[in-house]
Design a protein around this nucleic acid. Sequence first.
DNA 1: GTTCCTGCAAAAGCTTTGCAGAAGA
DNA 2: TCTTCTGCAAAGCTTTTGCAGGAAC
Lengths: 150, 150
Amino acid sequence: MEYPTSFLRSELVKKGIRPTYQRLKILELLHKKDTHPTAEEIYQILSPEIPALVKATIYNTLHTFVEAGLVRVVNINENELRYDSTIANHGHFKCKSCGAIFNFEINIDGMPFNGLNDFEIVEKNVYFIGFCPQCLNNQPKSIKKEKNGK
Amino acid sequence: MEYPTSFLRSELVKKGIRPTYQRLKILELLHKKDTHPTAEEIYQILSPEIPALVKATIYNTLHTFVEAGLVRVVNINENELRYDSTIANHGHFKCKSCGAIFNFEINIDGMPFNGLNDFEIVEKNVYFIGFCPQCLNNQPKSIKKEKNGK
DNA sequence: GTTCCTGCAAAAGCTTTGCAGAAGA
DNA sequence: TCTTCTGCAAAGCTTTTGCAGGAAC
């Protein structure tokens, strides 16, 4: 998928966020990468292109985006925050071996549940944990014993 | 629910974990409290009872429990790790206002999904975010505008 | 020109690690 | 007695904050 600058720019302007170069690049990356990068990963990817870029800016930018509802924080085990720009109904699958996060289709709103009668539900999330096909192929014997991908 | 020391003790011994006083207290707390306390909260609760207790011990103990499969890490938005001793099939609901986490019934294994054909699924999780009845009653007008409970 | 953002550096917060003494087997 | 755990202190990471110069409007 391609995201022209004009599209990204209007996405920001619509929310009252100044479309600076850094913000456009970070938003573009979040749209392109579907692996839900961490702040650190965003830094690693954009740093060569924007040498002056600093992590504080990435953190500030991500906060701005989250507050505006442009991206969502995905947070699956481990102590790390990942960011997701797809707000549609989907589940997240995290590979215990390589740590990658995949989207998959699931009708979250169709799931029956009990015990939240007087609660107001704002957001529903589903996440699975296991092993991705690539990791299963690479180490079919030992993979089950691995603790995590760190 | 009451958890006699002998029960807790055997739970640990079964997993090959030495049933020290600190570990028994932490495990007991995780069973009693269904709000999925953080390491910090565990420290706050047990500190008066065990003045010498130190956070490093709590972190180490929680790691030990997680590795043994006695407790699970629950991790819903925000940058904090919570621990859950109930391993059965249930969802977690996090209140945006007070930050408390509630369990609710949901048949996770019954949910249909697509796009994970060659994946090996080890664990399935569901979490909802919204407002709990208590917070809805306390501030029925302003609650929707609140960002989070921090 | 004014407002707001970025980069930089320093601080803050949470978690981990190394080690000596204490507790458990 | 031997092994393993706890408490303590220090280190390590990630994230946040304050401020001056710079970019956006």
